Computed example of a mutant assay.
Amino acid sequence: MSDQPQQAPELEWLEDGVPRAPAFQDTYFSRAGGLAETRHVFLGGNQLPERWRGREAFTIAEFGFGTGLSFLTTLQALRLITDPPKLTFLSFELFPMTRDQLSRALSAFPELAGEAAELLDAWPPTSGWSKLPIKGADLVLAIGDARNMIADVGAGDVELPLVDAWFLDGFSPSKNPELWGDTLLKSAYELTAEGGTLATYSSAGWVRRNLISAGFSIEKQRGFAGKREMVVGRKELHIQDSAQGDINKP
């Protein structure tokens, strides 16, 4: 593991305080309401917090940590339920923000001020693999190219539980196609627990086809704000047919 920080992103700050990445020609969260969109797409699309109830542990993974908004929104929701599971939150990020950038971006969400302060206290991660201590959660950050680093998990070099829910939250697929490619999504499928789910704000046809090719069953749902559609998916359970197995029994 390297102890050197990774390159920070170059940012533009729009007049409403939303950070924008010129390299990807996209904002880090919706100008129509980043917190509301996160709750609608990623929590709602993965049936959370309902699926947490009765679980001892739960693992979420995402491509693109960005401002940490998805993690903080999840952490806040987790803390509002009784007997929450231990959360492992795995996030891949090529260009982690500096502490100052992160603080400025998260100031847009006063509802998350407590959780944001905890994240900022633990920031920054180092290049490679980092685990940041957050109360009630293990925040595991893979700082580098997701297409390379996900192989560490698949090969067992990094020990993590199977993923129960994916937040597919990279920049727009048209601007950042690498995070939506067929090979990466197949790797994600292989790391997903049976019955595991995914949600994404994108409903692009080629993204849906790549998800299906990877092995997920998918469907469209109502999108956030003015966006007509979003996509959710599932890794189907493989249930043995016990009746079929009895056919040849004496």
Results as ranks from 00 to 15, higher is better:
residue 188 A to Q: 04
residue 58 F to A: 02
residue 87 L to M: 13
residue 27 T to M: 04
residue 239 I to P: 01
residue 150 I to L: 09
residue 70 S to W: 03
residue 89 F to M: 07
residue 129 W to R: 11
residue 11 L to A: 06
residue 132 L to G: 08
residue 97 M to S: 03
residue 113 A to W: 01
residue 73 T to E: 02
residue 66 G to H: 14
residue 196 G to N: 03
residue 67 T to C: 11
residue 88 T to K: 07
residue 134 I to D: 01
residue 199 A to C: 05
residue 182 D to T: 08
residue 212 I to M: 06
residue 182 D to W: 00
residue 8 A to W: 00
residue 60 I to A: 06
residue 81 I to G: 08
residue 38 T to S: 15
residue 97 M to F: 04
residue 90 L to N: 05
residue 65 F to S: 13
residue 189 Y to F: 13
residue 66 G to T: 15
residue 55 R to K: 15
residue 47 Q to F: 12
residue 99 R to I: 07
residue 6 Q to S: 14
residue 117 A to L: 08
residue 114 G to L: 04
residue 57 A to S: 15
residue 76 Q to F: 05
residue 246 D to W: 13
residue 155 A to F: 02
residue 218 I to K: 04
residue 109 F to G: 12
residue 201 Y to P: 11
residue 138 D to W: 05
residue 14 L to N: 07
residue 196 G to T: 08
residue 29 F to S: 09
residue 229 E to M: 07
residue 31 R to L: 01
residue 56 E to R: 15
residue 227 K to Q: 10
residue 98 T to A: 10
residue 181 G to L: 06
residue 128 G to A: 08
residue 136 G to C: 11
residue 106 L to M: 12
residue 41 V to F: 00
residue 133 P to R: 13
residue 246 D to E: 15
residue 29 F to M: 05
residue 182 D to E: 06
residue 130 S to C: 07
residue 94 L to G: 10
residue 233 G to T: 06
residue 28 Y to I: 09
residue 237 L to Y: 07
residue 156 G to L: 09
residue 7 Q to K: 14
residue 206 W to G: 03
residue 184 L to Y: 05
residue 121 D to L: 08
residue 178 E to G: 10
residue 117 A to E: 10
residue 223 G to C: 09
residue 142 A to Y: 06
residue 143 I to W: 00
residue 93 E to S: 12
residue 183 T to P: 00
residue 208 R to K: 15
residue 47 Q to G: 14
residue 5 P to C: 03
residue 78 L to K: 12
residue 165 A to K: 07
residue 115 E to P: 01
residue 54 G to A: 11
residue 77 A to M: 11
residue 15 E to V: 12
residue 187 S to H: 09
residue 49 P to R: 06
residue 197 T to A: 08
residue 179 L to C: 05
residue 189 Y to D: 00
residue 226 G to T: 13
residue 65 F to L: 07
residue 216 F to Q: 00
residue 1 M to V: 11
residue 2 S to F: 09
residue 181 G to W: 01
residue 219 E to I: 06
residue 13 W to Q: 14
residue 188 A to R: 02
residue 104 R to H: 12
residue 217 S to V: 15
residue 25 Q to T: 04
residue 129 W to Q: 08
